[in-house]
């Protein structure tokens, strides 16, 4: 029986590897088409993978829907911008920054890590309050947190530039950089999900009372997952900023929240693979819809969807999935190598 268990463990360990290979294939396919637009789309998709996998670490394991993770993206993006913009630019654009930050001229990689780190710190502090609430009330409190961050960022003009955008971020995010972050996020998410804390959190999600009776302190495990997930959403936000080159508080508000939720719901919130598959499926669908909105010429006739139909179609698709396939496309399963492939030595040992 132990060998059965061991095979199962090995299969679980293959999930992040298979997912990373899937993303690698996706990048290679997008790049081999040679189109610059495709390369951009690939990079954007992989940034979203970083984001959504980070989001899933909390939502998937705890079962609490968070509306606040876009705010962590906002924090990460601005921290990275504060640290990497040229000091002379900051002096004119953002005169209210403290001395140390105004003089900072960091390399982009530590800046992205710092963005995630600050987001994680904010998550640790706010989560300590929010996660004491029960599931639904906690969701609403995360929504209040999102609105709070957005209000502060839109009005603290001397430090954040207010509603006008911060421009001139170094655009270094190629599909390969984004792939690196996405793979890191997947690895960490898989490690966390398989850890004792991840297991305890999922147990508490399934049955709060039984888990508490088994000595699980749900609050502590929730807070850990929240902090970890905020780290990847923060660095995802930093990547997003350095991908587009321009950041704005409203770029990290309800639109992004909706997209992340739609991706997780359509892919299936029950598994890490669901989150990744959801991002890939929706990114490809969104790309198609955006092209349709711009118009496609068939012969002499240009055929175009009215603007805004992209969101309507996504929202309707999301509702249909919720009604007819509530567990999402992956229905809670993980992609993994078949038992035969990983059994090899283990089955001979017995």
């Amino acid at each position: 029986m132990t060998s059965q268990h061991r095979i199962r463990r090995r299969m679980t360990a293959t999930t992040p590897v298979v997912l990373s290979l899937l993303l690698l294939l996706f990048v290679l396919a997008a790049l081999s088409l040679g189109d610059r637009a495709m390369a951009r789309m690939a990079a954007e998709t992989l940034i979203r993978v970083t984001f959504v996998v980070g989001f899933w670490v909390f939502v998937g394991n705890s079962g609490v829907v968070s509306f606040g993770h876009a705010a962590f993206g906002c924090i990460g993006a601005y921290v990275s911008a504060w640290l990497t913009l040229r000091p002379e630019m900051k002096a004119t654009l953002l005169p209210g920054l403290p001395e140390v930050i105004a003089a900072a001229d960091w390399h982009v990689l530590p800046a992205a890590v710092a963005g995630g780190g600050v987001a994680a710190l904010v998550a640790l502090l706010t989560g300590a309050a929010i996660l004491r609430l029960s599931g639904i009330a906690a969701s609403i409190a995360t929504f209040a947190f999102l609105a709070m961050v957005n209000t502060i960022w839109a009005n603290w003009t001397s430090v954040t530039g207010g509603t006008s955008s911060v421009v001139g971020l170094e655009r270094y995010v190629t599909p390969w950089v984004a792939l690196g972050w996405a793979v890191a996020a997947i690895l960490v998410a898989a490690l966390h999900a398989a850890s004792a804390s991840g297991l305890a959190l999922r147990a508490a999600r399934e049955d709060e009372v039984a888990a508490a009776a088994s000595g699980i302190d749900r609050y502590r495990h929730r807070l850990l997952a929240y902090t970890l997930s905020a780290f990847f959403c923060g660095s995802g936000g930093a990547l997003m900023g350095h991908f587009i080159g321009v950041i704005n508080p409203d770029g990290f508000y309800l639109g992004l929240t909706f997209l992340m939720l739609a991706m997780v719901v359509i892919g299936g919130v029950g598994s890490l693979s669901g989150a990744v598959v959801g991002v890939l499926a929706l990114s490809i669908a969104v790309e198609g819809l955006v092209r349709l909105e711009k118009g496609i010429s068939v012969g002499a006739v240009t055929f175009a969807l009215p603007p805004g139909s992209q969101e309507i179609i996504l929202a309707v698709a999301m509702i249909l999935i919720l009604i007819f396939r509530p567990a999402g496309l992956m229905a809670g399963r993980e992609v993994m190598l078949p038992a035969r492939w990983v059994a090899g030595r283990a089955s001979r040992e017995t």
Partner: peptide
């Protein structure tokens, strides 16, 4: 309740874009 909440969020986005 969580699925219902997410469904209502999607409905809100659909109405807003309509």
């Amino acid at each position: 309740p969580v699925a219902l909440m997410v469904g209502s969020f999607a409905l809100g986005v659909a109405l807003q874009n309509l």
